[in-house]
C-alpha cells in the first residue's frame, strides 16, 4: 500500500505551510487518506516553520513523522534540523539559493534546486515554494500540475485569479529544473 510521508521546513513567510496543505488537498481530491499537521504558534510568525503531511491508501495513524519519505528544505537551519528525518533511500529537496551546504548522508537522494533564484528570474520571488512543488511532482509523479492549479484556483478565488499564470509558470519551472538536472 502506498504511503508517502512528507516534512516541509523553512522560515515563516516562505509558504511552507501552504506547500504541505496543497499536497494534502491534492491527496484528498484523489481519494487518498491524508493528514497535515503544522508546528504552530509563535514559530509560524517569522521563526522557523514546519509542517508534516502523510498521504496514504490506508488510514493515517500517527501524525508524528519520525522517518519521512520526502523532506523539503527551504532554508539553511532547516537542513541541520531535518536531514536526519529522511528515511534511508528517501529524498531531500533543498532550496540551494538559501541552503548552501550539501547533505552529509550518503544513503539518501538529495536534490539541490535554487528556487529563489528561479523565482527571481520569473519576476515573483514569492513563488519559490511552487517551484519546489513542481520539482516534487516531477520527481514523484504523485500529482499532475493541473491538480495543484485547480486547488490554487479554488483558494485564490476571483480576487487573486490573476496570480494563477505565475504559479503555473513556477510549477513548470520546477518540473523543468528536475528534468534538466537530474536525469
Amino acid at each position: 500500500m502506498m504511503t508517502e510521508k512528507i516534512i516541509c521546513a523553512g522560515f515563516g513567510g516562505q509558504g511552507v505551510m501552504l506547500m504541505g496543505q496543497l499536497l494534502a488537498y491534492a491527496a484528498n481530491d484523489n481519494n487518498l487518506n491524508t493528514l497535515w499537521y503544522p508546528s504552530y504558534g509563535p514559530e509560524t510568525r517569522g521563526g522557523t516553520a514546519n509542517c508534516s503531511v502523510t498521504i496514504s491508501e490506508a488510514k493515517v495513524n500517527s501524525p508524528v513523522i519520525s522517518q519521512a519519505d520526502s523532506v523539503f528544505i527551504m532554508n539553511s537551519p532547516s537542513l541541520d534540523k531535518f536531514e536526519s528525518k529522511v528515511k534511508p533511500g528517501g529524498r531531500i529537496l533543498i532550496n540551494s539559493s538559501l541552503a548552501e551546504k550539501k547533505v552529509e548522508r550518503d544513503d539518501i537522494n538529495a536534490y539541490y534546486i535554487p528556487v529563489n533564484d528561479i523565482a527571481y528570474k520569473l519576476g515573483n520571488p514569492r513563488v519559490a515554494n511552487m517551484i519546489m512543488i513542481g520539482a516534487y511532482i516531477q520527481l514523484t509523479q504523485l500529482f499532475e500540475k493541473e491538480e495543484i492549479l485547480k486547488i490554487l484556483r479554488k483558494s485564490f478565488g476571483e480576487e487573486k485569479a490573476h496570480l494563477i499564470p505565475i504559479n503555473d509558470e513556477a510549477i513548470e519551472a520546477g518540473k523543468k529544473y528536475i528534468q534538466e538536472n537530474y536525469k
Partner: peptide, 10 residues
C-alpha cells in the same frame, strides 16, 4: 489535544 485542533484531515 492541540494537535487535533491544528491538523488537517479529510
Amino acid at each position: 489535544d492541540g494537535l487535533i485542533g491544528q491538523m488537517m484531515e479529510p
